[in-house]
Design a binder for these strands. Structure first.
Lengths: 335, 335
DNA sequence: CTTTCTATTGACAACGCTGAAGTGCGTGCC
DNA sequence: GGCACGCACTTCAGCGTTGTCAATAGAAAG
């Protein structure tokens, strides 16, 4: 009736509970024969570990916290899903935490609200070197995306390569006046690896970014800010024949603004996003975007986590994945 | 250095650990004065309960599992977010589980994979009376959306009212040949409360559903099936002046198919969705949809959960919320 | 001035598991 | 033959919390 415990398994296998525990944890202490017997006993009584007991005794919780700022942005939802499923493949359960502001993000990474997890994978929105303030967490933390701080294991996408690829793509197809819809930054101007990729590609054509063609949405990467920024750019009277958005959601907002403004995509203006979220495939017209190689990123993040849980020491590592262009109709050649 | 325990609080407050526990759980056993003292001690040592200890001792985990089939569909991601945040408001932590198939959904509801939760809120994709097979779970389970089985507490949206409202809206604005893009059903024909709403509204105009104007996507409510179903309908040569989709994602897929087919929305054909997901606001043209009153649904679900956790007994309840039309350009009057 | 309550608090033994520290017993070595 | 050693396992105590039941004190009752 009651859920079976280690002791029940032990009784059946004719060994001590501790031995059962050792076998379950994969410790190479027991003989082959004993291991065999234990596993059979486990199966026969239908044993499943009691995580509370294990956690209390110091054996860890077997749980990884996945921390995102929200789930309504496809970028976060889709990556959270990929991470959770990948962790499950490795036998790790996960618990998702939504940290909508800087304080809760920090809390989630450094303990408080995720005390019941052995490790944390965070898709940060606020974290930066300043926020961390030199603190190092007391358990494995992997940062997924965003700028490395040097304090956490981090997986970064090929932001620079990816963005220079879209930029080149637009230049190659004859666009010359490239506008940017960015998210707000401290400095008030676009910055970061993606922007570097942009400059890099322009330079190859002997061009430079034009400040008059840059629009920043709010700090939050999302559709409405993209819409507003684009609307503002249109109202400014600036002339451009392509718009590069910092990500897909912003592009979806921008697309609508272009439509409202009577601008045809791609005939009058080409439009591109970044991230390869599902929504990009079904916009009208479908959105050209950059794939950050989701599989590779998730794989790298999970692998780093598993290694650290396995006791691997050493300074924070940074793994970089590639990025490739996904050309679609939104950046098609004008008729 | 170490995380403070009940004993530490007890020492400061000059009472036994058990009394501290009682105060923390809100038991009305201790005197006012003692309660006061305990709370101050808690604050002064910065105590936070150790959930593993509590769970082991039988005090519950204070955790609610939110179960969804996936996170890449906005409907699930957005509602999971709302639920998680609403639970947090009530002081309940949550753990999100992805159950992509019938077996894991069942497992999640009946224990196995969510043994570490005091209760479960499930946004089902597979659950039906048959799958449950008369089983009653041994802890509070609230079903969010989908068809009630009579076995679980359930929150349902105003599906019938909502769908009859969109239907009437289309009829009121002069549309007469209404097509349906549905998800696959056992019977192969559209069914369910939404369909009833459709029939009901048609009947008011002396009309009947036309089988030639019905298209079913795959079982999965998602964009690609919507695209395929719509493409098929267009290829069939059927003539229609409006398309009602079972939900927003399907509508997004259908919109693209219409566009590819050279059909103008809303000039040639009006298009509608259901669910009021974020994506509906930013399609081109923006999508007319039905809001299931998210706040009310989430509120009802959380409230039922809290009541059950509080020990409320009785047979499964069903709470129904309303639904209202959100008219947008996709169902505008043709010029 | 006992006796019986009532209100408040405490002692104790779990809960299921794991780290640390053994216990035997057979081997290999000089 | 004596001794150290390694192997295969076990014993023990305790992780932080809670339910059960006992204990204490003071008040009310007789």
């Amino acid at each position: 009736m009651k859920r079976p415990t280690l002791a029940d398994v032990a009784a059946v296998a004719q060994v001590s509970p501790k031995t059962v525990s050792n076998v379950l944890r994969g410790r190479p202490l027991a003989s082959k024969a004993t291991q065999e017997r234990v596993w059979q006993a486990v199966a026969s009584v239908g044993y499943r570990v009691n995580r509370a007991g294990r956690a209390l005794a110091g054996g860890g919780t077997g749980r990884i916290a996945v921390v995102v700022p929200n789930l309504h942005q496809p970028y976060y939802a889709e990556n959270a899903e990929r991470l959770i499923l990948a962790l499950a493949d490795r036998g790790l359960t996960s618990t998702l935490r939504i940290a909508p502001d800087a304080a809760s993000e920090r809390e989630a990474v450094f303990g408080g609200t995720t005390a019941d997890a052995d490790g944390v994978i965070v898709l940060p929105h606020f974290i930066n070197t300043e926020v961390l303030g030199g603190m190092a967490p007391d358990r494995p933390v992997v940062q997924f995306g965003s700028r490395p701080t040097g304090l956490l294991d981090t997986v970064v996408m090929g932001e620079r390569e990816g963005f220079s690829a879209v930029t080149r793509h637009l230049l190659d197809t004859g666009r010359r006046r490239l506008a940017l819809v960015w998210n707000a930054t401290q400095s008030g101007r676009p910055e970061g690896r993606r922007f570097e990729g942009f400059e890099e590609a322009l330079a190859e054509y002997g061009l430079e970014p034009d400040p008059a063609l840059m629009a920043a949405g709010s700090d939050w990467d999302w559709r409405a800010p993209g819409f507003e920024a684009m609307t503002g750019l249109l109202a400014s009277g600036a002339r451009f024949d392509a718009v590069l958005c910092i990500n897909d959601s912003v592009a979806v907002g921008a697309l609508r603004a272009l439509r409202v403004g009577g601008v045809r995509v791609p005939d009058d203006v080409a439009l591109t996003g970044f991230d390869d979220t599902d929504e990009a495939e079904f916009t009208v017209p479908p959105l050209t975007t950059v794939s950050p190689e989701h599989e590779a990123m998730v794989d790298a993040a999970v692998r780093m986590m598993v290694d650290r849980l396995g006791g691997e020491a050493g300074p924070p590592r940074v793994r970089q994945t590639g990025a490739h262009l996904i050309p679609r109709a939104s950046s098609g050649v004008p008729r």
